[in-house]
Design a binder for these strands. Structure first.
Lengths: 211, 211, 211, 211
DNA sequence: GAATAATCGAGACGGTACGTCTGGTCTTGCA
DNA sequence: TGCAAGACCAGACGTACCGTCTCGATTATTC
């Protein structure tokens, strides 16, 4: 996260409860007000904390919201559902459920927007949110390969490129469906997405881009 | 100022020029400052226009940026490149090229973020930006069906659902690749995306997610 | 004061009523809170004015209070009371009456204290407050000379030095009595002061401090 | 000062060096920053002391500065210079010399300003600073009476009133000259002041306030 | 020689005000 | 009558200090 009484002893230690309260207050404020109306003063008040305390731990609104939203993705898991299709559907539905929550809807795109001009913020997002999701892609593929549903990757670089592609397709599709098209990513839609992905991945195309 | 009354005489040759100047100034400000640092006062100054004039035409920052960004997508076209694969690759590369421009990167996600709490804004984005892109999906499919690359749709409702899915997958993947993963959607990546989509769509799956 | 639509034309002119309201609110706040507890935000609220408006006209707390307090000294006058003694007693009582008001007590010494480190502020105090008082000394002396109570000044430089001395003695004594000793400068005290001054000034000393 | 573990038994005693260091640091900060920019945190840092230590001994900025400034006036003395005129001139010059030092200029008026709303502070100032000066007036008068330069006081109450008047006149004049008029109280000016005072005090006026 | 007790430095805490900036609205006067 | 210029109210920004508190570590006195 951002601090843990940095090894030094002297001085009053930071309140651990404050961190928790602030992040919870941030999510509550996101639900009530959305990103643009959210103010750090209001978050501080909701958390029962002084603005100073908040600024002592986070550099600004962006960093705070990243951490607050990141916690939402902690619940993402990939239990073995028996088949690659079931694994994909399961994790996509989990992801969609998180994106359906207003605290995620309001905050996620906003921090991504800010990250286009702030490398440190983008790195924070990558570490706190994106990598946590991408890991699931790698786990799912390894499991499918163990089951024999997918062939093993002969080339490590190619394997990484494919994983990135799949990740961008899955995450991007769900985000676009949910936030841009503003339609629910329900089971029917997820089944359709899974079908396209599965057949796109398991079929060996004869020639890449030619008629 | 730009009141040189080039063609018109005394009437009001200004108003049209002001719109253009304001939208151009908005894009310039997006490049220089990004969404969060962009202020309407600054845009007005850049455009050589009073704040009053700006507020007379747009309700606020969000609406202004939507219009300014929407113009960027006017250049999206779908010339017949001879095959479905080539058509997809062509339009995706066009789309990626637009998203690579800083005025789009900074503004697009921000207005999408705002739209999660503002239905009027979402409708404006849908009309100005999203539908303009989705049309290309419909055109591309119709053309592929005419070529015989894709079977005709027996069910209109199913046809619409599929089009929506494809659109979310294409647009979402490119956006995620470009803005979240922050990697270029170059030709190699686009070819991979197209492969997965093509095989996912043209193969008839034998009921993938069975119970 | 500080501005008056600086010759420029364009734009909405500054509200004249705001100036009045702000200075009155400042004095009210001085009475209620004193100098150190007075905040510009509170003054703005009392005046029914935005903080911005206040800062557009005054650089800070010091400048504002100088102007607010200076107005109190506008009422100082020197009507001809028939004799030098009566004139002195009259003006000293007036001065003491002003210093007895809480808005003057709280503010005056504070801005003098600040002025010890701020030349612009000292100049502002001199112009707005001090010179306005010193003028009375010059008038009173000229009137006494016309009456024959004081001899004419042979040397202009010496005359200026004497006027400065008298002014510092009168003003300093009253201020010290009122604010440091914290006793009322009532008629009895003022009569004593006047006696010492009169006899000190009208008697020709036989070279007191010999070298 | 304020305490020195008078009757307290157990526990670590307060550091005597800290008191000295804090008061010296306060004067140094007054020179560098002036009253309004002086912060207790900065004083603590300069003194090499924790803020806690400072607050354990002084109630606040005002009290601390009073003590710091009061020490400056410890050097005021009234050696017998042979005549009342010489005694007055001597002590006024001493007083002026103290007021010329920046640590006194910055702090003295500020605490006087604060004292207009804080009786405890005024009492502290009176005890620590004012009475120390007023004593010199009483000593000087007694000495002059012993020399025969001034008549003995027949009435004790009247004697006290006169002493107060003289004190306010002397101290007030020097303060006003130095801090308000912002001119040096040099030998020439002091000689003029002394002349007026001497002749005002030693001459018996025929009628108090009449022409 | 513990135990007790008040001190010390350091620094986080809840607050409050700062002076600035922006968002939108509303007058002005020029053209 | 439209528009630039700019003042207006409202309120969030991020910073600085305030005076208090909680730490672990000293340093005395008292048992």
């Amino acid at each position: 996260m951002q601090s843990s009484t940095p090894a030094g002893r002297a001085g009053r230690p930071r309140s651990a409860a404050a961190d928790t309260a602030i992040l919870a207050a941030t999510r509550a404020a996101l639900v009530d007000l959305g990103w643009s109306k959210l103010t750090l003063g209001d978050v501080a008040t909701r958390a029962g904390v002084a603005k100073t305390t908040l600024y002592r731990r986070w550099a600004g609104k962006n960093e705070l919201v990243v951490d607050a939203v990141a916690e939402l993705f902690d619940e993402l898991e990939l239990p073995d559902r028996g088949s690659l299709a079931a694994d994909i559907e399961g994790v996509v539905l989990q992801f969609a459920a998180i994106l359906a929550r207003p605290e995620a809807r309001s905050g996620l795109m906003a921090v991504v927007a800010e990250s286009t001009r702030d490398d440190a913020l983008r790195e924070r997002i990558r570490t706190s949110i994106v990598e946590r999701q991408k890991r699931l892609v790698l786990e799912g593929r390894a499991r499918a390969q163990a089951r024999g549903e997918l062939p093993p990757e002969p080339d490590a670089a190619e394997a990484a490129r494919t994983a990135d592609l799949i990740f961008d397709m899955v995450a991007g599709s769900v985000v676009h469906r949910t936030l841009v098209s503003a339609e629910a990513a329900n089971e029917e839609w997820v089944r359709g997405l899974t079908q396209v992905l599965l057949w796109g991945l398991t079929t060996q195309p004869p020639e890449p881009s030619d008629g």
